[in-house]
Protein backbone atom coordinates (compact mmCIF):
# COMPACT_ATOMS: atom_id res chain seq x y z
CA UNK A 1 0.00 0.00 0.00
CA UNK A 2 2.88 2.36 -0.74
CA UNK A 3 0.58 4.56 -2.85
CA UNK A 4 -1.98 5.08 -0.06
CA UNK A 5 -2.53 8.81 0.67
CA UNK A 6 -4.99 8.82 3.59
CA UNK A 7 -4.85 12.51 4.57
CA UNK A 8 -5.24 14.03 1.11
CA UNK A 9 -7.94 11.44 0.34
CA UNK A 10 -9.94 12.33 3.46
CA UNK A 11 -9.57 16.10 3.01
CA UNK A 12 -10.47 15.90 -0.68
CA UNK A 13 -13.48 13.79 0.27
CA UNK A 14 -14.56 16.38 2.84
CA UNK A 15 -14.43 19.08 0.11
CA UNK A 16 -16.57 16.92 -2.19
CA UNK A 17 -19.03 16.33 0.65
CA UNK A 18 -19.11 20.08 1.35
CA UNK A 19 -19.90 20.79 -2.33
CA UNK A 20 -22.73 18.23 -2.21
CA UNK A 21 -24.11 19.82 0.98
CA UNK A 22 -23.82 23.39 -0.34
CA UNK A 23 -25.57 22.61 -3.62
CA UNK A 24 -28.43 21.00 -1.67
CA UNK A 25 -28.65 23.88 0.82
CA UNK A 26 -28.41 26.73 -1.70
CA UNK A 27 -29.87 25.33 -4.93
CA UNK A 28 -31.85 22.35 -3.62
CA UNK A 29 -30.10 20.10 -6.10
CA UNK A 30 -28.26 16.77 -6.06
CA UNK A 31 -24.59 17.02 -7.12
CA UNK A 32 -24.59 14.01 -9.41
CA UNK A 33 -22.17 14.91 -12.19
CA UNK A 34 -23.59 12.61 -14.88
CA UNK A 35 -27.09 13.98 -14.22
CA UNK A 36 -25.88 17.58 -14.31
CA UNK A 37 -24.06 17.01 -17.62
CA UNK A 38 -26.93 14.98 -19.12
CA UNK A 39 -29.32 17.88 -18.45
CA UNK A 40 -27.18 20.19 -20.58
CA UNK A 41 -27.75 18.00 -23.65
CA UNK A 42 -30.98 18.21 -25.70
CA UNK A 43 -33.88 17.66 -25.18
CA UNK A 44 -33.83 20.22 -22.38
CA UNK A 45 -36.39 19.00 -19.85
CA UNK A 46 -35.08 21.06 -16.93
CA UNK A 47 -33.25 24.32 -16.15
CA UNK A 48 -29.82 24.51 -17.81
CA UNK A 49 -28.26 27.68 -16.32
CA UNK A 50 -27.24 26.35 -12.89
CA UNK A 51 -25.88 23.22 -14.57
CA UNK A 52 -23.58 25.24 -16.85
CA UNK A 53 -22.42 27.31 -13.85
CA UNK A 54 -21.62 24.19 -11.80
CA UNK A 55 -19.78 22.56 -14.71
CA UNK A 56 -17.78 25.74 -15.32
CA UNK A 57 -16.65 25.65 -11.69
CA UNK A 58 -15.80 21.97 -11.92
CA UNK A 59 -13.70 22.56 -15.05
CA UNK A 60 -11.80 25.65 -13.82
CA UNK A 61 -11.10 24.14 -10.37
CA UNK A 62 -7.78 22.45 -11.38
CA UNK A 63 -6.47 25.81 -12.66
CA UNK A 64 -7.33 27.45 -9.31
CA UNK A 65 -5.72 24.53 -7.50
CA UNK A 66 -2.50 25.09 -9.45
CA UNK A 67 -2.67 28.86 -8.84
CA UNK A 68 -2.87 28.10 -5.11
CA UNK A 69 0.34 26.11 -5.44
CA UNK A 70 -1.14 22.62 -5.75
CA UNK A 71 0.56 19.98 -7.86
CA UNK A 72 -1.40 17.74 -10.20
CA UNK A 73 -0.40 14.45 -11.69
CA UNK A 74 -2.80 13.09 -14.30
CA UNK A 75 -1.65 9.75 -15.72
CA UNK A 76 -3.67 8.05 -18.45
CA UNK A 77 -2.31 4.82 -19.89
CA UNK A 78 -5.30 3.76 -21.99
CA UNK A 79 -5.01 4.14 -25.77
CA UNK A 80 -7.27 6.63 -27.60
CA UNK A 81 -9.52 3.92 -29.13
CA UNK A 82 -9.93 2.36 -25.69
CA UNK A 83 -10.80 5.78 -24.24
CA UNK A 84 -13.51 6.20 -26.91
CA UNK A 85 -15.05 2.84 -25.97
CA UNK A 86 -14.76 3.67 -22.25
CA UNK A 87 -16.30 7.13 -22.72
CA UNK A 88 -19.27 5.74 -24.68
CA UNK A 89 -19.87 3.12 -21.97
CA UNK A 90 -19.62 5.68 -19.16
CA UNK A 91 -21.98 8.09 -20.94
CA UNK A 92 -24.56 5.47 -21.91
CA UNK A 93 -24.28 3.51 -18.65
CA UNK A 94 -24.64 6.51 -16.32
CA UNK A 95 -27.69 7.67 -18.33
CA UNK A 96 -29.34 4.24 -18.21
CA UNK A 97 -28.48 3.69 -14.53
CA UNK A 98 -29.23 7.36 -13.74
CA UNK A 99 -26.09 8.15 -11.79
CA UNK A 100 -22.35 7.80 -11.43
CA UNK A 101 -19.78 7.80 -8.64
CA UNK A 102 -21.04 11.13 -7.30
CA UNK A 103 -24.80 10.72 -7.76
CA UNK A 104 -25.14 7.13 -6.52
CA UNK A 105 -21.81 6.71 -4.72
CA UNK A 106 -21.87 9.91 -2.66
CA UNK A 107 -25.29 11.63 -2.80
CA UNK A 108 -27.33 8.41 -2.89
CA UNK A 109 -25.38 6.59 -0.20
CA UNK A 110 -25.49 9.75 1.96
CA UNK A 111 -29.28 9.47 2.08
CA UNK A 112 -29.08 5.68 2.63
CA UNK A 113 -30.82 4.89 -0.67
CA UNK A 114 -30.94 1.12 -1.29
CA UNK A 115 -31.18 1.85 -5.02
CA UNK A 116 -27.92 3.80 -4.96
CA UNK A 117 -26.23 1.16 -2.79
CA UNK A 118 -27.07 -1.52 -5.38
CA UNK A 119 -25.80 0.74 -8.19
CA UNK A 120 -22.57 1.54 -6.32
CA UNK A 121 -21.78 -2.11 -5.54
CA UNK A 122 -22.58 -3.00 -9.17
CA UNK A 123 -20.30 -0.42 -10.79
CA UNK A 124 -17.48 -1.05 -8.31
CA UNK A 125 -17.57 -4.81 -8.97
CA UNK A 126 -17.97 -4.31 -12.71
CA UNK A 127 -15.01 -1.90 -12.80
CA UNK A 128 -12.76 -4.16 -10.69
CA UNK A 129 -13.54 -7.24 -12.82
CA UNK A 130 -13.04 -5.26 -16.05
CA UNK A 131 -9.72 -3.87 -14.86
CA UNK A 132 -8.55 -7.29 -13.71
CA UNK A 133 -9.27 -8.81 -17.13
CA UNK A 134 -7.92 -5.84 -19.13
CA UNK A 135 -4.75 -5.37 -17.06
CA UNK A 136 -3.81 -8.83 -15.82
CA UNK A 137 -5.35 -11.22 -18.37
CA UNK A 138 -5.35 -9.33 -21.69
CA UNK A 139 -2.35 -7.13 -20.76
CA UNK A 140 -3.82 -4.05 -22.43
CA UNK A 141 -1.28 -1.85 -20.65
CA UNK A 142 -3.82 0.35 -18.84
Amino acid sequence: MENFTPYSALSGGVLIGAAVALLLLLNGRIAGISGIVGGVLPPWRDAVGWRLSFLTGLIVAPLLYKLLGGQLNVQIHASLPLLVVAGLLVGYGTSLGRGCTSGHGVCGLARLSARSAVATVTFMLSAAITLYIARHVLNLGI
Binding site: A119, S126, A127
Partner: peptide
Protein backbone atom coordinates in the same frame (compact mmCIF):
# COMPACT_ATOMS: atom_id res chain seq x y z
CA UNK B 1 -30.30 0.54 -12.89
CA UNK B 2 -28.16 -2.59 -12.71
CA UNK B 3 -27.40 -2.80 -16.44
CA UNK B 4 -26.50 0.91 -16.53
CA UNK B 5 -24.24 0.64 -13.47
CA UNK B 6 -22.56 -2.48 -14.93
CA UNK B 7 -21.88 -0.70 -18.28
CA UNK B 8 -20.60 2.38 -16.48
CA UNK B 9 -18.30 0.14 -14.42
CA UNK B 10 -16.78 -1.39 -17.56
CA UNK B 11 -15.95 2.05 -18.96
CA UNK B 12 -14.65 3.22 -15.58
CA UNK B 13 -12.45 0.14 -15.18
CA UNK B 14 -11.00 0.52 -18.70
CA UNK B 15 -10.12 4.20 -18.30
CA UNK B 16 -10.05 5.19 -14.63
CA UNK B 17 -12.27 8.13 -15.62
CA UNK B 18 -15.74 8.80 -14.28
CA UNK B 19 -17.65 11.94 -15.36
Amino acid sequence: LIAGAALFGIGWGLSGFCP
